[in-house]
Design a protein around this nucleic acid. Structure first.
Lengths: 192, 192
DNA sequence: TTGAGACAAACAAGTGTTAGTTTGGGAGAG
DNA sequence: CTCTCCCAAACTAACACTTGTTTGTCTCAA
């Protein structure tokens, strides 16, 4: 049994994810974060340039995972329904495997400072377009009924991104159950 | 043309809603709030006991509106589908008529301090139960297909509560369009 | 003249961050 | 095997503000 000894850097990162999610980025101080890690506040700066840098790392890591999960989804022979189902499942699996970090990603990104904030928004928009594109083509091919694409995309994302809370609830739902049920619910609403 | 002269108190409240939504409760200081209102920070304390008190008023006002909007929805002769549709429309209309305040309600409630926080959670749970109850009965009567109720309720709420962002988007969607389309999308997914 | 509401000044505590210093363990030389 | 030297990573102390809030005073309409 290999008990992985995690580095101080990893420790800071994991603790930050936990605290930022529990109490919000702005409400968590460097001293509090350091205390939870078991070091003093200035020691954090041996590993991260700034508080913003820490948030940036958390957010951009999750962003990268979303893009990675989408790879292969858009293979051209598949139907719009199959593509969207695969995209939904990939998205949910990233959340499920990064509960704390993805929650920070969705709730605290607004605290990113300026070069990072713009970069974040650009990437998120790009990712959103991938989903919208599937729906758009699905409507045009007649797989989905004509609907306001923006509304549909928003609905799907907000449903998916709240998955975090589901895992925390008392009922034991597996990732597969959640992904399956949610994909069914949303896809049925789209079908023409 | 009655140009309504609003009181300083109302002014503080409205400005707080706007700033809390834009930048987050924790990130907005009393001096910044005061400046935006056009007064000095200590003057706020002539109208509100504390920063927490201000957040509490915003949140509990919205909570009351959600309960009010639900009145009459649960009349017994209606089908589960009709009830849920009415509940969804009522919920969305509260959001639509209180864009800033409802956004604060959903995103910043976690910063409430202790007696208020517990009260908030209790009320929210109560409200959630009303929705869950409709779905539960709908499944038992065969109107809806059997699904995990918690998952369904979460999906519906997260879709509804993100409505805020839709209004802000470039496309012009009316409240009725949003309510109608979203209710259709979600109800179709539920139907047995 | 009373009272509401604005104010400046100040409080204690907390903010992110920097400077300068100490510590401990590993590499290389004798 | 020991003795330097080095460097990462921890530390203490402090900086320059900012935080929410209180106190006491002044103003002005009723």
């Amino acid at each position: 049994m290999a008990t992985a000894t995690i580095s101080t850097r990893q420790n800071i990162r994991l603790t930050a994810q936990k605290l930022f999610r529990e109490r919000g980025y702005a409400a968590v101080g460097m001293r509090e974060l350091a205390k939870e890690v078991g070091i003093e506040a200035p020691s954090i700066y041996n590993h991260y340039k700034s508080k913003d840098d820490l948030l940036r790392e958390i957010c951009s890591d999750i962003a990268a995972q979303f893009f990675k999960a989408f790879e292969g989804v858009d293979a051209d022979e598949k139907s719009a329904t199959k593509k969207l189902r695969a995209a939904i499942k990939g998205h949910i699996s990233v959340i499920a495997n990064n509960l704390e970090a993805s929650s920070v990603f969705f709730q605290e990104w607004m605290f990113l400072e300026e070069p990072n904030l713009a970069q974040f928004k650009k990437q998120r928009h790009e990712y959103e377009l991938k989903f919208r594109d599937i729906i758009d083509k699905g409507i045009k091919k007649g797989d989905f009924k004509p609907m306001n694409i923006k509304l549909v995309t928003f609905t799907i994302f907000s449903a998916l991104n709240a998955t975090y809370d589901l895992y925390r609830s008392n009922e034991r739902l597996t990732q597969d159950q959640i992904a399956e049920d949610m994909a069914n619910l949303l896809l049925k609403g789209l079908k023409s």
